[in-house]
């Protein structure tokens, strides 16, 4: 049968991308008006680099949400913070130990993800509660491991993620694009990916069809944990310094990016490209607010209101109690 479906699928998805693309352009224009220089090519490069970190984090969140069963990862920010602080400690600031650092983060992120998955799928603690509790466990672990004073010496090779490759394009952007393409291929072309969609769409039907629902769902959490830990590593590489709970905002931001990107929150449907576009919208918004000198409280207020408006618009078409 026709396996040229990817391009066609892409076309149908375009519709779900329009709102974020339009919002991005609009925000760029607003930014340029409020703060001249905002839409300069070099600033756009910076914004895209910041968005890249969020986009990578969003991959994990989107995967977990797509796997269904009320799947959500509220511990994403905590895992990212942990990756950002513990990663450099493992590397001891040496570029030669960077492989060791990555391996350690994959292992720790994977274990945390596994606990999340096991708790939510096997013990059947609702994912929201399970991952919330894990967030406090992971934050506690990071605090204990760093003795409350993270001494982050970042290996020079990791700092390289912020370097320019050509023009305004930095290494991080390329990493993010590669990660998205890779994961999108995994989701669409591999057995695991296809099963994630089916399991996310209807657990009971997937179980009756003889698929191992638990393994698929737990694997999503494991992958999500690994991606979050690595995203934290990239974050600290770009930021150049670390502090406790530095990435905790990313939990909310990643969920918001997933929602804006058109991923179905009940699972079974969604694209990573959409999530990346959502990340761009959020980063643009935050940057504008910072550029015009809004304090943190107002930024959070405005972000909250915008998210609310998006939600209300999204759900105004949702099935009502009365059809």
């Amino acid at each position: 049968m026709s396996r040229n479906g990817l391009s066609l699928k892409g076309l149908t998805n375009l519709k779900t991308f329009f709102p974020s693309i339009i919002a991005s352009v609009a925000l760029l224009i607003i930014g340029q008006i409020l703060s001249p220089g905002f839409a300069d090519i070099s600033n756009i490069g910076n914004l895209l680099t910041v968005a890249s970190i969020l986009a990578i984090a969003t991959i994990g969140q989107a995967l977990i949400i797509t796997s269904g069963g009320e799947g959500i990862d509220m511990s994403l920010g905590a895992i990212m913070s942990m990756g950002a602080l513990i990663g450099p400690m493992i590397s001891k600031g040496q570029s030669g130990r960077i492989i060791l650092m990555i391996a350690a983060l994959v292992l720790i992120g994977g274990i945390i993800g596994f606990i999340n998955g096991f708790g939510s799928q096997i013990i059947k603690i609702p994912p929201l509660v399970m991952t919330l509790i894990m967030a406090s466990v992971v934050n506690g672990l990071t605090l204990g491991y760093t003795n409350g004073q993270p001494s982050v010496t970042i290996p020079p090779a990791l700092l390289g993620v912020g370097k320019r490759v050509f023009g305004p394009v930095r290494v991080l952007l390329i990493i993010a694009i590669l990660a998205i393409v890779l994961m999108e291929l995994v989701l669409r072309k591999t057995k695991f990916g296809k099963l994630v969609y089916l399991v996310g769409s209807n657990r009971n039907a997937a179980k009756l069809a003889g698929t191992n629902v638990n393994i698929v769902a737990i694997a999503s959490y494991v992958l999500g944990g690994i991606i979050a830990a690595l995203a934290g590593m990239f974050l600290v590489g770009y930021a150049g310094s670390g502090q406790l709970q530095m990435a905790n905002d990313y939990t909310l931001l990643s969920i918001a990016a997933v929602v804006i990107g058109g991923t179905k929150l009940t699972g079974g449907k969604g694209t990573l490209v959409g999530g990346a576009l959502g990340a761009i919208v959020l980063v643009l918004l935050t940057s504008i607010l910072v550029a015009i000198g809004m304090p943190a409280g107002v930024r959070s207020l405005i972000q909250g209101i915008i998210l609310l408006v998006i939600l209300v618009i999204l759900y105004i078409k949702a099935p009502k109690l009365r059809q």
């Binding site: 296809k194 069809a209 079974g268």
Partner: peptide, 23 residues
Amino acid sequence: EKEGVFGERSVSENLTAVNNLVL
């Protein structure tokens, strides 16, 4: 609805789930 169709997915994916992914 509860135990049969994968509501968010295509006819093709619904039809081939067992054949292509399980067996």
